[in-house]
Design a binder for these strands. Structure first.
Length: 264
DNA sequence: CTGACATCCTGACGGC
DNA sequence: TGCCGTCAGGATGTCA
């Protein structure tokens, strides 16, 4: 499932291949819940627009269209944003096709339809940016919060971009149990969490993200960070650091895996 | 306001 | 082999 590193990889890859190009034609599938803005509005804004920049904001891909605003793509769980030749057959579950002046198509494909397309004037994202937030601001995010630290990490209004994989992986590396109350973590623990979170996100970006279900980048290529996972997807296996059996619980409504020995 | 929980959707996987 | 039930999860909406 695409989180910050996967979305960043896709956004950068798409940017390289489409910036500066004109959107000549737009086709949309008509599946209602895929479109957060009316399809007619999306088509009107996109058709004839020039793509200035493609970047990541939280887990959202924001395509800047100059004075026309931004085209926002949220990949949900199984969404893919692909740059393809028109000669390549449309994959099943294609929901939008943008024909570009460079001759290629920008395609949005999403089997499970948790992804969303919309247009907006400008997009800032709901929360703070994990890669650039300072120490004091990071610590302040969790002050007084009674929910579990894992649930707090998943809350996009606090930090945006972190999902289930990198929440579990950063908590393991920071040696913090996922169910600890966020507001009761010490400053030292939160600073450790910030360091490990930034580290794991940057490392994952370097490796092209984690391909666990069907995540691929703009060229359809899989990432490699799943090979570095210490806990995510490893329920029932042994901790790579200490050999203790990893535990699986539900926190914040999400499957959560942790090491009861390493994480306190 | 804060937090907990159900809901959407379909492919993959396990069991028999 | 093939069928069927279960599971996965980001954002949103509802409820306490």
């Amino acid at each position: 499932m695409p989180e910050l590193p996967e979305v960043e990889t896709v956004a950068n890859g798409v940017h390289e291949r489409v910036h500066g190009q004109l959107i000549e034609r737009v086709w949309t599938s008509g599946k209602p819940q895929t479109f957060k803005s009316p399809e007619s509005e999306i088509e009107a804004v996109l058709t004839g627009a020039r793509i200035e920049r493609v970047r990541r904001v939280g887990k959202t891909i924001a395509v800047s269209l100059g004075s026309r605003g931004e085209f926002l793509v949220h990949l949900g769980m199984t969404g893919r944003l692909l740059v393809s030749s028109p000669e390549v057959p449309l994959p099943p579950h294609t929901h939008a096709v943008l024909s570009l002046s460079g001759g290629n198509e920008l395609r949005f494909v999403d089997a499970r339809r948790f992804g969303r397309l919309s247009v907006a004037a400008a997009y800032e994202g709901p929360g703070a940016e994990p890669l650039t937030i300072g120490e004091d601001d990071f610590v302040a995010l969790f002050r007084g919060r009674k929910l579990a630290i894992k649930a707090a990490l998943l809350n996009q209004a606090l930090l945006h971009g972190v999902g289930n994989i990198y929440a579990d992986e950063s908590l393991f590396r920071a040696k913090i149990r996922p169910r600890r109350q966020a507001g009761r973590l010490t400053r030292a623990e939160l600073l450790r969490l910030r360091t490990e979170l930034v580290g794991v996100l940057k490392n994952a970006i370097k490796l092209g993200g984690s391909s666990v279900s069907d995540y691929v980048d703009a060229d359809g290529v899989r990432g490699f960070f799943q090979l570095e996972h210490k806990v995510y997807g490893r329920a029932g296996e042994d901790c790579k650091d200490c050999g203790t059996g990893l535990k699986k619980v539900v926190v914040g409504g999400r499957t959560t895996v942790y090491c009861p020995m390493c994480q306190r």
